[in-house]
Design a protein around this nucleic acid. Structure first.
Lengths: 250, 250
DNA sequence: GTAATAGTGTCTGTGAGACATTATGGC
DNA sequence: GCCATAATGTCTCACAGACACTATTAC
């Protein structure tokens, strides 16, 4: 029997050792949530200011430890609810960051999530304004490095990855409808794409694409006036994927 | 000063507690690697047979603990090298699985990776054939549930996600060139796509698409004879992404 | 010659992009 | 009337897909 498993023994020994808390390597598992929303027409991310070292005073993603009997997704949803009060927003796992020195105190493996939430006012419910605020992503991961705010840990990289993921989610899912209040006009929906992608879109082509994609939006049978001709209103339909995806200009 | 951080104190308390190994919740962080390759024309995944409970005798993904001073990517590369001897294969982080009850022994959070490797003979270097083998993914996550082999833990879901990721990687990157020996014919490259996607492709359209995509392949200035007309040979070029992506039939 | 595969040519449909044109409101 | 935006129409180009056709080898 020992001859049948010469290579796997060491792995099981590791597992047995794991049962002894004293012998276990101290690794913390946390979730960090990149809450993205539109604020004054700019894609923004919710950050909290740290009150203790390391990185005291620096801005960081909200996050916390995964509890013992809680799934990773549940932990992310809990953090999102604690920080914003939002409960039904699309939350997606982004990636996991675990470089040995990403936290100077100890080994911390962080599972990052992206949440796309509708604009809220006040922007962050239940938190002190001096402790949490929305930052335009341009000021955090923009191209002009001199204008960027330094983030704690490796959170700038996480935010950059989250923005890139959000841009891809807009291409392949109707998640943009979660960033506007219903009912919405097609212009409002287009502004979501323009803000997240950072490029202007042709209104005519955008309209044709959205209306011709099954399950994206459904008419609301009302109009909203403003400057110019009143616009028809729509609500999100049931599609989970957009196929073919929304085209994103280079 | 205490008034400036009313909401963040509990988080820091958690971190302080984490410094005491005895008070720390026992969470293990592992990496599991889905090594995908082509075996007899079928997309296959490398699995190892478990020698101890739980799931004794069941097949599972190779994996192991993340070491103290090792990044997640390094841990995945190490596991891949230990199991297959492959060192320069494309390895990508897939997702992280951390349901509280996914391992009956303790809380285990597993960061899963996908590795696409060239067919090798013998298929697995340095491991006992009775302990590790390649399984066609159809026999693990295929549609006919009755014919599937049950995997340990939640590894069936991980394999399913890995296959889906591999299918997407073939669309957007030239990674298919890593699954054939260089130099290769366009037919061989096409067989990779057909095996991973599970659909036949039109040889003429495939050829035009590959040759018209900058950086995908470069001519090798030689031909290989076989049954039928000899085929020109190619090598991988330097592209990292394929834009526009390879079209995948429905 | 036939069989088999490599490689080329051509036609069609779809969708993206550019942009003109018309419609409908506020002022 | 003007202005701004909504909504429609039209043209072009790129590309995917289907498939006919030619080329080159083994036998």
């Amino acid at each position: 029997m020992a001859a049948r498993r010469p290579a796997r023994v060491s792995r099981e020994r590791e597992f047995l050792a794991a049962y002894d808390p004293r012998a276990f390597p101290p690794v913390a598992v946390t979730v960090d949530v990149a809450v993205l929303t539109l604020r004054a027409g700019s894609l923004s991310v919710l950050l909290v200011q740290r009150g203790e070292p390391p990185y005291e005073g620096a801005w960081a993603l909200p996050g916390g430890f995964v509890r013992t009997d809680e799934s990773l997704d549940a932990a992310a949803a809990r953090e999102l609810a604690e920080e914003t009060g939002v409960t039904n927003a699309p939350v997606a796992q982004l990636a996991t960051y675990g470089d040995p020195d990403r936290d100077p105190r100890m080994r911390v493996v962080s599972v990052a999530y992206v949440a796309l939430v509708r604009s809220v006012d006040p922007p962050v419910a239940g938190t002190d304004a001096a402790e949490a605020r929305l930052w335009p992503v341009e000021d955090v991961v923009g191209r002009r490095r001199r204008r960027r705010t330094a983030l704690a840990f490796d959170h700038a990289r996480i935010v950059a990855d989250a923005v890139e993921r959000a841009r891809d989610m807009l291409r392949h899912t109707p998640v943009a409808t979660a960033l506007v209040d219903e009912p919405f006009t097609l212009s409002e929906l287009r502004h979501v794409y323009e803000a997240v992608w950072g490029v202007p879109l042709d209104p005519a082509n955008f309209r044709r694409k959205v209306l011709s994609t099954p399950g994206f939006v459904t008419p609301y049978d009302a109009t909203r006036g403003g400057v110019g001709r009143p616009a028809a209103l729509y609500r999100a339909a049931g599609a989970v994927t957009l196929d073919p995806p929304m085209p994103r200009p280079a």
